[in-house]
């Protein structure tokens, strides 16, 4: 069932288009920076952007900071909103459920496919932006001949290549979890409506509402539980030593969203009358 869903997802043109666009935005930024050499002033602009001009190996971090706030959530909303509502609107959901598989298994398979989508999305952005970064800006001043040198952490201490790989892999995993939480909400919305667009817009409404409430002093009590509150915590992985506090808290909050949203999707979908 899971493999069937994965194959189905990989055959969808819109999925590949999402990945392509996610990789295109950082590439465009790299081209602009490389041609103009006008990096944002220190402390302004996206995280790491002011430093990429001197070391292309930092570009994956800058690229992730670029796509995480808006573009990545949009693609997750599109894909997750389509999971059940897409089958419903296409008239294939009833036939899917005729097969001897439980609705819970179908939901699990759909969630796994969303998880694979977000993991690959973050991974593609990371790999493509690394390649684009070193081509556009080089390996940095400490590069050994023909290969990557060390990357300075935000704290100024140099990170060894092995350390960079570990931190980048942890970042990919963390961001994939953050987006999976959004995907689980999308899955829930997808069980509530027959319209994939409505489900996707619901996810985006949640993101916008969370981002709007987050900076308010009056919302301080609920701020740690907002879905967007910890999206940038991965930046702490590039400090030395790593500051785990926000990453740990963020991971727990996102796991909470996955559990609650998936539970609600199951509660709703298990007994839903499927007529299409």
């Amino acid at each position: 069932m899971i493999l069937v869903e994965l194959r189905l997802m990989l055959r969808k043109r819109r999925v590949w288009l999402c990945w392509l666009l996610l990789c295109a935005l950082p590439t465009l930024v790299a081209v602009l920076l490389a041609t103009t050499r006008l990096a944002p002033p220190p402390g302004r602009g996206g995280a790491f952007l002011s430093a990429v001009v001197s070391n292309g190996q930092i570009f994956p971090a800058a690229a992730l900071a670029l796509v995480v706030p808006v573009f990545l959530p949009i693609t997750v909303a599109i894909v997750a909103g389509d999971t059940i509502a897409g089958e419903s609107s296409a008239g294939t959901l009833r036939y899917l459920l005729v097969r001897p598989v439980g609705r819970l298994r179908l939901l699990v398979a759909k969630l796994v496919s969303v998880a694979v989508f977000v993991l690959l999305a973050v991974l593609f952005v990371t790999v493509v932006s690394y390649a684009v970064g070193v081509v556009a800006f080089g390996f940095g001043p400490d590069a050994s001949l023909g290969g990557g040198g060390a990357i300075p952490s935000l704290s100024g201490v140099e990170l060894s290549p092995a350390d960079v790989v570990f931190r980048t892999a942890t970042t990919v995993g963390y961001l994939a979890l953050c987006m999976l939480a959004l995907g689980a909400v999308g899955l829930l919305f997808s069980t509530l409506t027959d319209s994939p667009l409505a489900a996707a817009l619901g996810v985006l409404a949640l993101v916008v509402a969370s981002a709007a409430v987050q900076p308010l002093d009056a919302a301080a009590a609920i701020e740690p539980f907002l879905p967007t509150a910890h999206w940038l915590a991965w930046i702490d992985l590039f400090r030395d030593p790593i500051l785990w506090a926000d990453v740990r808290e963020g991971a727990l909050v996102q796991l909470g969203y996955v559990v609650v949203a998936f539970g609600a999707a199951w509660a709703n979908f298990s007994t839903k009358d499927v007529t299409t």
């Binding site: 220190p42 995280a47 430093a51």
Partner: peptide
């Protein structure tokens, strides 16, 4: 967007500004 670190050691201060 980075960090600004202030060290105090041996009668001197060191300020590292990533940005």
């Amino acid at each position: 967007a980075g960090e600004r670190d202030t060290y105090r050691l041996g009668g001197r201060e060191y300020v590292w500004d990533f940005g």
